[in-house]
Amino acid sequence: MSKLLGKISCPKREFLLASTSTLGAVGAAAAAWPFIDSINPAADVLAVSSTEVDLSSIAVGEGLGVLWRGKPVFIKHRTAEEIKQAQDEDSVEMIDPQTDADRVQKTEWLVVIGICTHLGCLPSGHLPGDKKGEFGGWFCPCHGSQYDTSGRIRSGPAPLNLEIPPYAFKDDTTLIIGDAEA
């Protein structure tokens, strides 16, 4: 036994140790991936990634909240006045500057994810009688962030405008929220 060990030169042993350890580490990392990935959204969760909404029932000036991927999405049928207000204020100084045209596909329909970009509360304003805040859009009851009629953050601690989900108009009265191809 000792005769055998004596024949092994040190550089060879070091090489073997380093290469074995490297391969072992790569193997361990590869084995860890299925575990990490298993807690990502599963196929059935991803499969319900689009939501279809019938717009014909939403009168001008009214709004509707729907769930898309478990998140609330606000669909607002804006009045001419609200559209004008949103467009007129494009040039005003804002926390997260963006024009109204960049935020809508059709000016009368505003579609935003109803999650305050501060800490995730649900802002009020899409139902009749809701408190809308000073800018006529949404008001977050948690920490007082205020959004305008284009869903842009205008005052309060939230850093970003209300997020726009991917959506498309299937026809004049049908809206698809989520992946267009789904």
Binding site: W33, P34, F35, D37, S38, N40, A42, A43, D44, V45
Partner: peptide, 13 residues
């Protein structure tokens, strides 16, 4: 069955 079909690598686990 959902673990087997839908969960990522669920079949493997």
């Amino acid at each position: 069955e959902r673990i087997m079909r839908d969960v990522n690598y669920g079949w493997l686990l």
